[in-house]
Amino acid sequence: MKDLVGRINSIREDRTHGAGELSRRALEILREAAQENRSPTTAGFLEEMGVICRELIAARPSMAIIASSVGRFRRRLTEYAGREKDIESLRTFAVRAAAEIMEEISSAKGQAVTAAAGLFADGTRMVTCSYSSTILQVLEQAAREKRFPVTVLESRFGAYSYGEITACRLREKGINCRVIPDDRAREAVAEADLILVGADAVLPDGSLVNGYPTLELATAAAERHPRVPFYAVCESLKFHPRGAITLEEGFQLIPSWMIKGIICEEGIIDPGRVAEYSAGPAAT
C-alpha cells in the first residue's frame, strides 16, 4: 500500500481531529490495504493485515475506539478465514468488513447524538471543553428546535486552542457560543445547567479519558451544590475493555464518581454499568 507508514504516522501525529474521526481513517487504511494486498495465501494475507492492525492500535493508545474498531475488524477477518480459504473471497470480505464497521460506528454515534440532544430545552445553559465532533453534532441537532447559550472552555494545550476550533465549527453551523479561559471553569459551571463532553475512552469502572481541561471542568461541576450534571457522549466502541490505558500527553482521567452518565447508542447508562457494554478485547 502506497505510503502506509506515512498514513499511520498521520494518525499518530494528528492533534486536531477527534477519536471517532481518526478511527474512521484507520478503517479506511485497512480497507485500502486489503484491496491492494497481493499475498497469494490466506496465511500471508492475515499476517500482513495483522501487522497493520497492531500499528494502528499502537498509534493512539488513549483512543479506545481505534483499538476497538480495528479489533472488531481483525476478529471478523480471522473468523471468516476459518470458514473460507479462498484468498480472493477473503480479500473481498476484508474490504466489506471495514466499510460495514464504519457504518456501524456512524449509526451508533447518531443514536448517541439523538439521546444527548434530548437533554436540551429552550434556554439550557450548556458548557463543554476540548474538541469533539460528537458534541458538535449534538449541539447542531439540538439547535434545530431549541435556543440555548453555549460556553466553551478555551482548552489550550500546546499550540492549539481546541475550544476555539470547536467555536469556529459551531459558528459555521450558525450556533452562537462564547469561549472563555480555562481558569474560569468554576465561573462557567456556576452558571450552567448541563455539561457535555466527548470521550476518547471510557474504562470498565466508568472513568473517562478525554482532553484537557476535562478534569478541571468535572471537578468544578462536582463541587457545586447541587451538582451540575456532567455527561460524556460517545459510541460504546469507546468503552475500553481493559482496566488500564496509556494516557497520551494532553489527555486526562476523570473518575467515574464525577460523571452522572455516559450517553451512548444504548441511551444514558450509569458509569457503573460500562463493563456490561464493553466491545471486547482489542486486537493484539
Rank of each mutant, 00 (worst) to 15 (best):
2 K>G: 13
3 D>T: 13
6 G>Y: 10
8 I>D: 02
9 N>E: 15
10 S>H: 15
12 R>F: 10
14 D>Q: 11
18 G>K: 06
18 G>S: 01
18 G>I: 00
23 S>R: 03
23 S>T: 11
24 R>A: 14
26 A>L: 00
28 E>K: 13
30 L>E: 02
36 E>P: 06
36 E>N: 09
41 T>L: 00
47 E>S: 14
48 E>S: 09
49 M>T: 03
52 I>A: 03
52 I>L: 02
55 E>P: 00
56 L>S: 04
57 I>F: 03
59 A>K: 09
60 R>K: 12
60 R>M: 02
67 A>Y: 10
68 S>N: 05
69 S>N: 11
70 V>I: 11
71 G>P: 04
74 R>W: 08
75 R>M: 13
86 D>N: 10
89 S>A: 14
106 S>D: 15
110 G>T: 08
113 V>I: 10
114 T>G: 12
119 L>Y: 11
123 G>S: 12
124 T>V: 10
125 R>I: 00
126 M>V: 13
129 C>A: 08
131 Y>R: 06
133 S>W: 09
134 T>E: 01
135 I>M: 01
136 L>R: 07
137 Q>N: 15
137 Q>H: 14
138 V>M: 02
138 V>L: 04
139 L>N: 04
141 Q>N: 12
142 A>N: 05
148 F>R: 06
150 V>Y: 01
152 V>L: 04
153 L>I: 04
155 S>Y: 04
156 R>E: 09
160 Y>F: 13
161 S>K: 05
162 Y>N: 06
170 L>G: 06
171 R>D: 06
171 R>N: 11
171 R>W: 09
175 I>W: 05
178 R>L: 13
182 D>I: 08
182 D>W: 01
186 R>N: 14
187 E>G: 14
190 A>G: 15
195 I>N: 07
201 A>L: 05
203 L>R: 07
204 P>W: 04
206 G>L: 07
206 G>Y: 07
208 L>R: 03
212 Y>L: 09
213 P>C: 00
215 L>T: 14
220 A>I: 04
222 A>Q: 03
224 R>Q: 10
225 H>D: 15
226 P>C: 15
231 Y>F: 15
237 L>N: 11
240 H>R: 05
241 P>K: 04
242 R>V: 14
243 G>N: 14
245 I>Y: 01
249 E>F: 00
253 L>I: 13
258 M>P: 00
262 I>W: 04
262 I>K: 08
267 G>T: 08
270 D>W: 09
270 D>K: 10
277 Y>G: 07
281 P>Y: 11
281 P>N: 12
